[in-house]
Design a protein around this nucleic acid. Sequence first.
DNA 1: TTGCTGACCGACG
DNA 2: CCGTCGGCCAGCA
Length: 111
Amino acid sequence: MEKKNDFFEQVWEVVKLIPYSRVTSYGAIARYLGTAGAARTVGYAMNASHRSATQIPAHRVLNRNGMLTGKHHFGTDRLMQQLLESESIVVENDIVVNFDQLFWDPNKELF
DNA sequence: TTGCTGACCGACG
DNA sequence: CCGTCGGCCAGCA
């Protein structure tokens, strides 16, 4: 039977397409893939991103509030914030400042 | 094989 | 405003 890992690969591909100093949300990616509501699966794909051959900038993927919900999965809690700050992204109280401006919607940018 | 869980989101009361 | 529930997909016991 064919494996449906395409979903994961699609998620990873979109995440890798996120430009520098930009962020997006799990739901936006899920909706872009045509599976709105499967945002949890997108997050799960991030958790499994470690098995991807290429590096996945999972730190650029946040929830709709711009909160670093998955920071605990980066090994250390500050790693995710450090990575974001390293891209000139301001993080305050585990929330990305100017999230609206930094938000990169694949549904808009891509087609 | 069934059932539960998870880095989520939107709707409902 | 806050708490709760259903839905989506994949991995594990």
